[in-house]
Write a protein that binds this DNA or RNA. Structure first.
Length: 819
RNA sequence: GCCGGGAUGGUGGAAUCGGCAUACACGGGUGCCUCAAAAGCAUCUGCCCGAAAGGGCUUGCGGGUUCGAGUCCCGCUCCCGGCACCA
């Protein structure tokens, strides 16, 4: 490299093979006493090559990991692939092949791109969730939950995607449509496997206290809303002609005297059971109509209430009043008990229903507002209880406590907490996933596959065998399905569903430290060494699903003694999206930006730097607003700086120009705290300032042979290695050092150089800046006041106005206030 | 509707313990270098008045607290994200 032009292509070609040889980012190299850190990036799904979004996310994660490496920590920064999933199956059908082919081709492509992108991974901990060596342990995890009673099978109405022909978890239904393909979701009654995540609702909520301030607010809020805790009471209503009472959940037991009717979910078994013979025809017509309606259609109707009377009566336990029972679709069969007491005066939905069907409205809380029956607006606020027997005259909170006590005394109810969260449906009617390790025996029934028979491997299906049929493709592999019962040895059938791929990703971070262990899933010693994850980087699209499931599985494994912490991710940051011209990139808009093309045009460093300099990491980067060319220019400038250093390596740096040294040390101090605060854009800006200052020192200051210039250039190289590793490495070589700059060690700040000899004091007159004074940092209040008042600009600005007060805040500011 | 987050030059963004608003860049102007171009270097660049010196104004809008507000308080407008018949 004799050319003195910055040539990023040559630099990439030179250093990539050197780094491959050095393999500098292996975990566990720093000895037993080094402090350890676990840096984790959300692992990618192998759909083709890496894209702009990956470039952003992994650049951010890499700065964090590289900063830890530079700071002397022993760092685990692993990578893997979330490699089960639907697109591989679709590709396999198209190519008449097995999904593995497409999957592992893409993994290799992405791995190659990651290497070129210079992410500081420890490749020796690599994993793929579709490897039998991995999914064996996913199946083991399933069995663990099964043995604990946390995995169970039940028949229920499930979300069904009519295009993908598979069931979906509640979390995968977005505004009534399939998360993956956007098709409106319908309901089906199926027997499926569930994980009992609702058992952990309270802990998932309360353990969030330790995530506060370390996770983004919006993620915590989304999780809280998703879990949806509400407090109230369960109340038992007798149904005429039925032995067992029906329980309802309400958050407003104080309004019990205002219940004027009773509603059960139209699609529930209860509605079917309660329907009187004379209403049977109407009910079944209505139920058919409800079943056909997707959530999207229902939303489109704008809250129009529908329903049918069931011809039965419920009895209000507090006053013995008979109230009619209706079936309606505004009551959900899978929330609470699927039945409610309707208090139209104080609940808007009940009021809408009552007004539609002419049902009575009785006010029991006087809020001072007008009668809901005439205004159409339910009154939900606090007020004085009326028409409520013993509760009359109380306020809301008193009434709630009193009525709950009475219900408990009479055995008609009790205080209760209800959650919006449902159990996690994990069965999928797909091929490319981890088979559910259960067999069905005519004699022994449901039997778990013994641990020593894991993994239950996928049979080799390809092409049309994988086409969606509404049942799992595995059902057609009869040789695979037919097996022997582990208990009695007789013929039995395997479960033909595979697990939701979110099961795979709910524990991968626990596997990374011990990927090589073939005998156990999680090596407790390795896990203790690294986990929990110190920092997790990834997209906000996983704010609920992946993060909630991971937290749940971690808690289960904690209870079983496999892990020693209850929260897997100490801190979390969500990167923004890379968009173009104000919109997210898409084929239909034709505004896609290809990462490969950008890298080929500007080089890895310029792209990484552009991503990081564009703005705060959690905000979107609009590619049409940023300048990779500008980033490239800065890198060239920094690179030239190193070449213009003429002092020898090892020169005593403390003899350098004091002014530049102070600038360097101040920059290092500031950049350190900016990087720690994830303010990478500002850190880069400060680095640019340091480069500019050093440039000036060479061109019009002490010159290139001054040790302070070497000190500045070396600091720039080390700090730049977080953002632009190739350029930094080449600078490091120019400065006469051996690779790799990535492990050179973060520059040490000399506190003596941070002390300023003079500072600028601002002098204001009536709050407007009129003069600046150069004063010592420990200037006294009196001296500063005198200096300020003696300043001619202050006198001019004051004119002949008298002075009312002088505010003095040494050493920064004086404000002279005229009378 | 509920919850969360925002609004600063032509653009991306700095300045969050109340104390120099517009750092660092992008874009643009002018000049040097060059046969020319690219690259590089120098320099200017919030708005208005002014030849200049200088002055006035400015952080979505309206109030308030304060010697002093982009920053704190009250009331709005608009934008982005999440949830949405959850009893």
């Amino acid at each position: 490299m004799t050319d003195d032009r910055y040539d990023w292509r040559a630099i990439q070609e030179r250093w990539l093979p050197e780094w491959e040889k050095l393999d500098p980012f292996r975990a566990g190299q720093r000895g037993p006493d080094a402090e350890r850190r676990y840096a984790l990036d959300m692992f990618p799904y192998p759909s083709g090559d890496l894209h702009m979004g990956h470039a952003e996310a992994f650049a951010i994660g890499d700065v964090i990991a590289r900063h830890w490496f530079q700071s002397g920590y022993d760092v685990l920064h692993p990578i893997g692939w979330d490699s089960f999933g639907l697109p591989a199956e679709n590709a396999a059908i198209k190519r008449n092949s097995n999904p593995a082919e497409w999957t592992y081709e893409n993994i290799e492509t992405q791995a190659e791109s990651f290497r070129r992108y210079a992410v500081s991974f420890d490749w020796s901990h690599r994993l793929h969730t579709s490897d039998p060596e991995y999914y064996r342990w996913t199946q083991w995890l399933f069995l663990l939950l099964y043995e604990r009673g946390l995995a169970y099978r039940k028949a229920s109405q499930v979300n069904w995607c009519p295009k993908d022909l598979t069931v979906l978890a509640n979390e995968q239904v977005i505004a009534g449509a399939c998360e993956r393909c956007g098709t409106p979701v319908t309901k089906r009654e199926l027997t499926q496997w569930y994980f009992r995540i609702t058992d952990y609702a309270e802990r998932l909520l309360s353990d969030m206290a330790e995530l506060e301030r370390h996770w983004p607010d919006r993620v915590l809020t989304m999780q809280r809303n998703w879990i949806g805790r509400s407090t109230g009471a369960q109340v038992q209503f007798t149904i005429e002609g039925r032995d067992e009472p029906v329980t309802v959940f309400t958050t407003r037991p104080d309004t019990l005297y205002g219940a004027t009717f009773f509603v059960v979910a139209a699609d529930s078994h209860l509605a079917d059971e309660l329907c009187a013979p004379e209403q049977r025809e109407d009910f079944e017509t209505y139920r058919e109509q409800v079943r056909r309606l997707t959530d999207i259609d229902r939303l489109a109707e704008g809250g129009e209430k529908t329903g049918v009377p069931l011809g039965r009566y419920a009895v209000n336990p507090v006053n013995g009043e008979r109230i009619p029972v209706w079936a309606a679709d505004y009551v959900l069969s899978d929330y609470g008990t699927g039945a409610i007491m309707a208090v139209p005066a104080h609940d808007q939905r009940d009021l809408d229903f009552a007004r539609t069907f002419g049902l009575p409205v009785r006010v029991v809380v006087d809020t001072g507002e007008r009668d809901p029956a005439s205004t159409g607006t339910a009154t939900a606020g606090d007020g004085e209880l009326v028409n409520s027997g013993p509760l009359d005259g109380m306020r809301k909170q008193d009434a709630i406590e009193t009525i709950v006590r009475r219900l408990e005394e009479t055995g008609h109810g009790h205080a209760a907490i209800n959650y919006r969260l449902r159990d996690w449906l994990v069965s999928r009617q797909r091929y490319w996933g981890a088979p559910i390790p259960i067999v069905y025996c005519p004699i022994d029934g449901e039997v778990p596959v013994p641990h020593d028979q894991l993994p239950v491997r996928l049979p080799d299906l390809r092409g049309q065998d994988l086409a969606p049929k509404g049942v799992s493709p595995l059902a057609a592999a009869t040789d695979w399905v037919r097996t022997t019962c582990p208990r009695c040895g007789g013929p039995a059938d395997r479960d033909t569903d595979t697990m939701d791929t979110f099961v795979d990703s709910s524990w991968y971070f626990l596997r990374y430290p011990s990927v090589d262990r073939e005998d156990i899933a999680i090596d407790p010693v390795e896990l203790r060494r690294w986990a929990p994850v110190d920092h997790y980087t990834g997209g906000v699209e996983h704010a609920i699903l992946h993060l909630l499931y991971s937290r749940f599985i971690t808690k289960v494994l904690f209870d079983l003694g496999y892990v020693e912490f209850v929260e897997p991710f100490r801190s979390l940051h969500n990167q923004g999206q890379v968009i173009n011209q104000g919109k997210s990139m898409s084929k239909s808009l034709g505004n896609g930006v290809d990462l490969g093309t950008e890298l080929a045009t500007h080089g890895v460093d310029a792209i990484r730097l552009t991503m990081l300099f564009a703005g705060p990491p959690d905000e979107d980067v609009d590619w049409s607003d940023v300048s990779p060319t500008g980033s490239g220019k800065f890198l060239a400038r920094a690179w030239r700086l190193a070449r213009d250093v003429t002092s020898a390596p090892g020169t005593d740096l403390t003899t350098g120009d004091v002014a530049l040294r102070a600038t360097t040390h101040r920059s290092v101090a500031e950049i350190s705290s900016l990087v720690e605060a994830f303010r990478f854009n500002v850190a880069v800006a400060r680095l640019m300032e340091l480069v500019n200052a050093a440039r000036k020192a060479i061109d019009s200051g002490p010159g290139g042979d001054d040790p302070a210039v070497r000190e500045a250039a070396e600091a720039v190289a080390i700090m730049l290695s977080l953002f632009a590793p190739y350029c930094a490495e080449d600078m490091w070589a120019s400065l006469g050092h051996d690779p790799t700059v990535a492990l050179a060690g973060w520059p040490v700040v000399d506190p003596a150089l941070l002390v300023r000899e003079t500072v600028t004091a601002v002098v204001q007159v009536a709050g407007k800046v009129r003069a600046r004074l150069s004063v010592p940092p420990d200037v006294s209040e009196d001296t500063l006041r005198e200096l300020a008042l003696a300043d001619p600009a202050v006198a001019r600005s004051l004119g002949d106005r008298p002075i009312r007060t002088v505010v003095v805040r040494p050493p920064k500011l004086v404000n002279v206030v005229p009378g």
